[in-house]
Amino acid sequence: MEKIKAIIIILFGISSFAQTDDFKQIDFTKADSIAKFYHGENLDNLPLLVHKLTATFTTDVEKFRAIYTWVSTNIDNDYGSAVKNQRKRKKLMNDDYALGNWNNTFKIHMFRTLLKDKKTICTGYAYLIKELSTIANINCKIIDGYGRNIDNNIGELSVPNHSWNAVFLNNKWYLSDATWSSGYTELPTYAFISDYNDGYFLTEPKLFSKSHYPLNEQWLLMQNNPSVSDFLNGPLVYGNTFKNTIIPITPATMYIETSKKMINTFTLEISESFKIEELELEISNGSNRTKVEPTNTVITDNLLNVDYQFKRTGHYDFHIKLKDEVVVTYLIKVKRKLYHSKRSSNKIKI
């Protein structure tokens, strides 16, 4: 009976629509301060570390916040190892035996590096978040799947290349990605730059799905799950998209065909803190970048409609920016004429 009860609770949590708004009444300043106070602590004694981070809190969400912030600001991303692992896995993807051996060998290396140098890849981040949360009696899972960025899962599915966490708080599941919260890697040096991004903490599932797709679709945590095709062909989003809680709605795909005579409407779901004066549009054609003015902008409730008419034929990267940082990218092909539709938002090439 207890098992059935637990399964019902978990399924209810998955079907619920998780939102960070659920915790608007919680001030995370104290949790962040605790994480900062214990900056530099080692990983030799995880129960002691959890006690230091969570002992003063009564709510699970504050405990998880302290754990998450500490991991995101104390563990470096080992990008070089991540690249090496991905290349090896792609090479061995058709040889199950060799792939299994590599995975076991690399896992040992990854955990040794994490414990010794506090440096790891996404699997290590997700593992550490799960272990610390479990010690704090918080139900947390590692979610494996696909991460999408400018180099991965554009139009075609690669081997699984990313891991993140789902955490159970107040009878609901929430999604977080400590790896992408932690900072970024400068190329070609592979130097890791610690730069905490709060946008990946308890992220709205609709936004999370723009760059994360789990192997098990139940962990999308949405009532109407996007398809793999939606994930692969959607507009490109960035860390600043998450930081500013911008969700591209339409066009639904990154590749768009239009003509010079057409008004193109780009619809974004925005947060309450959005400021229209910070919006910028940029067109890139090869090495040339040009800022352009929208034809029109309209905000209705939490939706922003941006209209733009392209002046010349050709192929363009069309960037929607906020505070001079790119948040959404579309790839545009502008023709002289299009004969099969009246609006470019319906002329999407998949």
Score class of each variant (00 low, 15 high):
K3T: 13
K5W: 14
K5C: 13
A6W: 10
I9W: 08
I10K: 14
S16F: 08
S16R: 11
A18W: 01
Q19F: 02
F23C: 00
I34W: 02
A35Y: 04
A35P: 02
G40H: 04
E41I: 02
N42K: 11
L43N: 03
L46Q: 07
K63G: 00
R65D: 02
T69A: 09
D76P: 03
D76C: 07
D78H: 06
S81I: 09
N85V: 13
N94L: 10
A98L: 14
G100K: 04
W102S: 05
F111G: 05
K119P: 01
L128V: 08
L128P: 06
S133T: 06
T134P: 00
N137L: 08
C140T: 15
C140Y: 04
Y146H: 12
L169V: 06
T179D: 01
W180F: 10
W180M: 07
Y184I: 08
E186V: 15
F192I: 10
Y200F: 15
K210S: 03
P214E: 02
Q223D: 14
S227Q: 03
F231N: 01
F231I: 00
N233S: 06
N233T: 07
P235V: 04
L236F: 04
G239S: 14
I249L: 15
M262L: 15
I263Y: 10
I270P: 00
S273E: 12
K275R: 12
I276F: 04
I283P: 00
S284R: 14
N288V: 13
T295I: 07
N296Q: 15
N302S: 15
T313N: 10
G314V: 11
D324L: 14
R336P: 05
S341Y: 10
S341P: 03
K342R: 12
R343Y: 13
S345C: 13
I348L: 15
